[in-house]
Design a protein around this nucleic acid. Structure first.
Lengths: 184, 184
DNA sequence: CTAATTAGTTAGATTATCTAATTATATGAA
DNA sequence: TTCATATAATTAGATAATCTAACTAATTAG
């Protein structure tokens, strides 16, 4: 599943760590003339940071045998519980993936008895999906860890930094959701 | 590979967009008492933003038939070119993945004639990996787009916001690299 | 000189995605 | 009313990115 944690290696010929500098040099040689280098530099760091954030979160969830995308789906079920009519189609369009992909995720989650399907009476082509007691139990185990992991991403920032960062973060998040035509 | 772009859907029963509010409510019910809610809120946004950033970047690279991880590997080859001795092991430990996974990536890249392997003379167990002319050409096509995409992640932030964000970003990036025991 | 170690690959698995085809049901138009 | 079309879900089959374990070949160390 996730990336490796252990060291399989020992004495090997490591590639030296270069840091960001050679990437910036390369950028000078290869960026289009109208690309703002400072922004591209920051964007590169954001991309690297994003990779690392997903690794950290998936690493922390791994011990519960669940991934971010599956937890995502379960949270959707939980948060829309009053809404009786959650269907694979609805989940697919919300998660931005195909119905066939949702079928696969639901198979996996159903096998573990974390979600349940039942056929709709109103329209017998449709399936209603819900979280089970066992699924709810799992989510309650996972969430405290999940929130702690989220909070830990900010470790090392002081209060002032957090305050100014929050404004920027809200803006960035809003912008990119607009760009992706999404939103949770 | 990537997520879908197209709409397979039409009239369906959409799940309404709830925004972050119900997640925060859930956090209030499920976070450990020592978890800082403001930090967890920001961390959640960072996680969502990270997902979106990777989607945007992979989307922009997709038209060149390459993914972020493969481009990463090619850039490593390019930046360490003077270093004659780049091996699959070295790449694996640098990329934080297993040697077997690197073998698979190299097979894929070699099939397209973007990288080349040759056996080491000094130690005939070892293989030296290099980028080919064709690979270099591809990278030169891709990079201007890549930098533009990176820069575009900052769209909508004004100069002041960029300046303050840069400080925080450098710190966050440094912290998480320390945490993952990595560094490029 | 043999045993252990190392580098790389192969074989086989899982997860997450996709597209295309299939099945069952529902709807709309002649 | 029936038949063509549309929709929901699943199935079948593919690709990508990862993993572990086993294997082969080469090197090194006791």
């Amino acid at each position: 599943m996730g990336k490796n944690t252990e060291r399989e290696f020992s004495s090997e010929q490591q590639l030296p760590t270069l840091g960001v500098a050679p990437y910036l040099k390369l950028m000078n040689q290869t960026a289009a003339p109208d690309t703002e280098h400072n922004a591209a530099h920051m964007g590169l760091l954001m991309l690297w940071l994003s990779d690392n954030i997903l690794d950290v979160v998936d690493g922390d969830l791994a011990s519960y045998g669940i991934t971010e995308s599956k937890l995502d789906l379960m949270l959707l079920l939980l948060l829309h519980e009053e809404n009786e009519g959650i269907t694979p189609s609805g989940l697919a369009s919300r998660l931005g993936i195909r119905r066939a992909s949702v079928t696969a995720m639901l198979d996996w989650l159903e096998k573990r008895d974390w979600i349940a399907r039942r056929q709709s009476n109103a329209d017998r082509r449709m399936v209603h999906v819900s979280i089970t007691e066992k699924g709810r139990y799992l989510v309650n185990q996972v969430l405290p860890v999940f929130w702690a992991t989220c909070a830990s991403l900010l470790d090392g920032l002081n209060t002032t930094e957090r305050d100014i960062f929050k404004k920027v973060l809200l803006k960035l998040h809003g912008n990119i959701e607009k760009r992706m035509g999404g939103g949770r």
